[in-house]
Simulated assay, not measured.
Amino acid sequence: MKTIKKLTLSAAFLFITAFGMANKIDLRIVSDENSKKLVFRYDNITTDATLRFIDLQGNVIFSESLEDKTEYLKTFNLNSLETGTYFLEVEDAIKETEYTILVEDAHISIETKLEKNKPVFRKKGDMVYLNLLNLSKKEVEIKVIDNSDRVVFNQVFENTALIEKAFNFKNAHEGRYSIMVKNLNDRYYDYIIVD
């Protein structure tokens, strides 16, 4: 039994790692004395994604869905932007990537890159399977909440790199259930309706 569990965990870890690494992002600065440009390339192999360029106040300057599952190339001309901090965000089914970009009079720079793994939910019949790659091993809380806002399941994972959980709704009461995954300040939800 322990061998089967180890093999299942190993296979799930490899699946999530391979799935997460399939989409590649390349962000480069092209700058000279007359222009400030940001070149974004995304090899979108496995899943649909969304691209957003946002200012410090949260205003969306540019947004586009990347659904082609092919290479995507976009050049942002930043000459008309005011001096300040901006964010380029790419979000797909399993990961959020955010670049912090500093625009100054003479040049632009990429200050930071932050990646967050998102939980992967898979539904099969009355079952919901949850996988989360948590390489930082930070605390993760999972709750299942019914349509009366009652918590019917709650579990906290500590120091766990790969979180796997299966939920069986076969004998659950009718209604809408929310599955919430809280990872630091981020919350992710999935829903299931039991009839």
Rank of each mutant, 00 (worst) to 15 (best):
2 K>R: 01
5 K>S: 11
5 K>E: 14
6 K>H: 01
11 A>R: 15
14 L>Q: 13
14 L>K: 14
15 F>W: 06
15 F>Q: 14
16 I>Y: 00
16 I>R: 09
16 I>H: 01
16 I>E: 04
18 A>W: 02
20 G>W: 09
20 G>S: 13
20 G>Q: 13
23 N>S: 01
23 N>A: 00
25 I>S: 01
26 D>Y: 09
27 L>T: 05
33 E>N: 12
33 E>W: 06
33 E>A: 10
35 S>I: 02
39 V>M: 13
42 Y>G: 03
43 D>Y: 07
46 T>Q: 06
46 T>F: 03
48 D>E: 09
50 T>S: 06
50 T>P: 01
50 T>V: 04
54 I>R: 11
55 D>A: 10
56 L>R: 15
56 L>D: 13
58 G>I: 08
58 G>Y: 05
59 N>E: 15
60 V>S: 09
60 V>Y: 05
60 V>G: 07
61 I>Q: 11
63 S>T: 13
64 E>I: 05
65 S>N: 15
66 L>C: 10
69 K>Q: 12
69 K>W: 06
69 K>P: 00
70 T>Q: 11
70 T>E: 08
71 E>Y: 09
72 Y>M: 03
75 T>G: 00
77 N>A: 07
78 L>H: 02
78 L>G: 01
78 L>D: 02
79 N>M: 08
80 S>G: 09
82 E>F: 11
87 F>E: 10
87 F>Q: 13
96 E>P: 04
98 E>C: 09
102 L>N: 12
103 V>L: 07
103 V>C: 07
106 A>Q: 01
107 H>W: 13
108 I>P: 12
108 I>E: 08
116 K>G: 02
116 K>Y: 00
121 F>N: 10
121 F>A: 11
121 F>E: 10
123 K>T: 04
123 K>P: 00
124 K>C: 01
126 D>P: 02
127 M>R: 15
127 M>G: 07
128 V>L: 11
129 Y>F: 12
131 N>K: 14
133 L>W: 05
133 L>I: 10
138 K>S: 01
138 K>T: 00
141 E>A: 08
142 I>N: 07
144 V>S: 07
144 V>K: 12
145 I>H: 06
146 D>C: 12
147 N>R: 12
150 R>N: 08
150 R>F: 00
150 R>I: 02
152 V>A: 06
152 V>C: 11
153 F>M: 08
154 N>W: 03
154 N>D: 10
156 V>M: 02
157 F>I: 09
162 L>C: 02
162 L>A: 04
164 E>F: 06
165 K>V: 04
166 A>N: 15
167 F>H: 10
172 A>S: 14
174 E>F: 04
174 E>L: 06
179 I>T: 04
180 M>W: 03
182 K>P: 04
182 K>Y: 05
185 N>Q: 04
185 N>M: 03
188 Y>R: 05
189 Y>W: 01
190 D>E: 14
191 Y>A: 02
195 D>H: 15
